[in-house]
Design a protein around this nucleic acid. Sequence first.
DNA 1: AAAAAAT
Length: 673
Amino acid sequence: MDDEDWDTEITDNRGGGALPAFQPNFQKSGSLPVRANETSSVFGRSVKPAGVDGKQNGEEKPTGGFGNRRSFGNRGASGNRFEERNPGFGRGMIDGGDTYRGRRGSIRGGRGGHGLFTSNDYEMQDGGQQSSFFGSKRGGFGASSGDAENRGRRFRGRGGYKGINEEVIGGAGKSLWKSDGDGEGGDFAGPKVTYIPPPPPDSEDDIFAHYQTGINFDKYDNILVEVSGLDRPAAIMTFEEAGLCQTLIKNIARAGYSKLTPVQKHSIPIVLAGRDLMACAQTGSGKTAAFLIPILAQMMQDGVSATQFKEQQEPECIIVAPTRELVNQIFLESRKFAYGTCIRPVVVYGGTQTNHSVRQIQQGCNILCATPGRLLDILGREKIGLSKLRYLVLDEADRMLDMGFGPDMKKLISNPGMPPKDERQTLMFSATFPEEIQRLAGEFLKIEYLFVVVGQVGGACSDVQQTILQVSQYDKRDKLVEILQGIGDKRTMVFVETKKKADFFATLLCQEKIKTTSIHGDREQREREEALHDFRSGRCPVLVATSVAARGLDIENVQHVINVDLPSSVDDYVHRIGRTGRCGNIGKAVSFFDPATDSGIAQPLIKVLADAQQEVPSWLEEIACGSCPVGFSNPRRNMFASVDSRKAFQSKENQHSGGFLASNTSPADESWD
DNA sequence: AAAAAAT
């Protein structure tokens, strides 16, 4: 290969020195069965070290300025936050001497103060008052100061936090919110404080932290792959065939990747060939690396803007995803691959200080990982320009294009600076992709894009053992406690339908002495990240979540998913249970099915179960038969769409016209296959 | 009903 040495002078992109030597250590990469279309292909190409100037990146760590740190509760949560602080509701929150949570907080309209009990703070502060959620009484959101304590510790981390530690742990959290002159906001007269995220851990071990592939990893090779479109590049079988530079090879190995998954085998050469791509592959099968690796490789070859402070930065790559935590996860993954190169990834999302996002970007930005709202905000402030944009990635693409995010995506694509689709590469990845959304996606993609499907579009991962239990809503709490007590300390994600119920169940489980935390959109950003950290670390083996955590999150050792409430869309179900059974590991998913509310999902659910070779309860089939699925009138996408009906579009059939989102209103009245 | 910008 002729590209082995050009990057050897490059220094650590965190501002550190030259990289220590690292020997790639590919694990046993056995010979894989090669399918007919998987002939190896060489992507070694002439490499010019353009733009690779070995410049050090700017320092990523915030340098103080932590005065002003409360997430702004949007979506009306702020509107009623103080009104609901009636006696008897959330009173348990006011413990530990009026901690910051009780004081600043009730940020979620008085809810959300459920305890997250730590090992050393394990008693209900409100005397163990039992809640009766289903009886429509909303009491007993007892709280513990436990996570407040830990939170203060964790988010301190570096310089600039000194002196706060004692105050928080002492429970006098309000001092935390007093301005001591180091903040840029310092507006403590008002209730608005914006959270500044902690600097990401950046020791090399932290950066490359990963978990092991599971016993079923090799079974990925048995899954059928369908690639449609013209002039399909051949798949590659090994990382070596991708013709990557040495630094990237090292980073890939160090990040724990040794064997390609099917979606990677096909997507990497497609992206390297400069093609647009829509790719569907099961949850946990390596989609993120499937786009990051080839993008990084291309950027290394073509060169990127030097890392230096500029008022406006012009990233070569923008990656969007539907939740803040997912965007952060993608960022952390991109940081692995970019380590020791001149490519600087940056992450920005809401619930944090916009100024912090801006500063991060201004220090240099080649890959921008962002949630849509903050991205548009930053674009509007002209802190990023799009003239150098060459890669636009929509992770969880179906979600990014549906009713919720579609308008934001349209704004992004319509930005005057956005290169037309023929001058950029647009990549979309998801485990699910309803047909009508595929159709919308065509607006973003070149006519001749390629469509990769691993297995079935919208299919569940077969490494997840799925169980459906008929449980009425009134029995859910007892059943949940029973199951969790049987599970023991194994990591479990519990999904519910509403934020309120997330709080309720988290509180309930804490009362049952099960170490639980929760994540949902009405929690402060810092609380969300704290919850995720406590779950990841095992400190809280149970995470109660809304669908905010349904997609993309890659958490080690999640062995169980419990759907206390089934989602209304079967695609959401597929994503939720996909939090377990990742990367060749196995997992279990148990779902409570209440015929009173869930009959609409019975039929598509049966399809998903059957396609994943799971047992289908006879009672469920009876319910499905009874719930006549005649309606395509149901506004909810996917309600009755069978997995089988979703087929890959042939690329020449993608030349549909029609305005973006306008076509959303017209159902599948055209034949797409 | 969840989520995505702040204000």
